[in-house]
């Protein structure tokens, strides 16, 4: 463990907490993409299947369970909660998210470190996570008013893999870790997709004005 990965995990955890806070206190999921949330459920289920095959640490196990549980919980709120589901921007959240799953899986079958079920699933989860934010970013562009909780949630979610990039650099030099191109490039793509968002988020923060993404 290093400070970058710890900060990344905390940023990720905090983003989930903020999202749940928004949904539970305002009883609204306006501006949140259900498609992105569902893709994240698939990401976590595919990546954390190793809960059954390998134990790393108490922290590792707890965090995996927390991410799986919270991601399912969020999807449940948006799909089935009597009040929350009515605030879902169904007409704006139009990304055909199922479409990205087969190509990511196919890529994992072709490009991986090792051809085993667990490894391919892990690899698939990295490729899928790299693009999972797309529905949310598109919805954001169509949303008139981006509330603070939503903006902060997305910022923290984007920051987490950015911090992981620093973690990988650290591990490569300090721990003499092997080159893990698949993780690095997936993480880079994932973070790069936030570039636009980061720019407008920081700009709105500096100018103390409402966050707005140009169409």
């Amino acid at each position: 463990m290093n400070i970058f990965r710890l900060a990344g995990d905390m940023s990720h955890l905090l983003s989930v907490i903020l999202l749940l806070l928004k949904i539970r206190t305002t009883k609204s999921c306006a501006g949140i993409s259900l498609k992105t949330q569902e893709l994240y459920v698939v990401v976590f289920l595919a990546r954390y299947l190793n809960l059954f095959t390998r134990y790393y640490s108490f922290y590792n196990t707890v965090m995996k369970l927390v991410f799986i549980a919270t991601s399912v919980c969020i999807v449940w709120y948006m799909r089935f909660h009597k009040v929350v589901k009515q605030t879902y921007n169904k007409d704006l959240d139009t990304f055909r998210h199922y479409v990205v799953i087969p190509p990511c899986f196919l890529l994992a079958l072709l490009v991986h470190h090792e051809f085993t079920v667990m490894e391919v699933l892990w690899t698939f989860s990295l490729y899928l996570e790299a693009v999972a934010i797309l529905p949310q970013l598109i919805l954001l562009q169509r949303t008139r008013n981006i509330d603070n909780l939503t903006g902060n949630y997305i910022f923290l979610l984007g920051a987490y893999r950015a911090l992981y990039l620093l973690n990988w650099i650290y591990r490569f030099f300090m721990e003499k870790a092997q080159a893990r191109w698949i993780s690095w490039i997936s993480g880079l793509v994932q973070t790069a997709l936030y570039a636009d968002f980061f720019y407008y988020y920081i700009k709105s923060w500096k100018n103390n004005e409402k966050l707005k993404l140009p169409a």
Binding site: H12, Y56, M63, K64, E175, A177, S183
Partner: peptide, 10 residues
Amino acid sequence: VSSNDVKDEL
């Protein structure tokens, strides 16, 4: 657990 294995990450 080898520190070379990034599978210990989330």
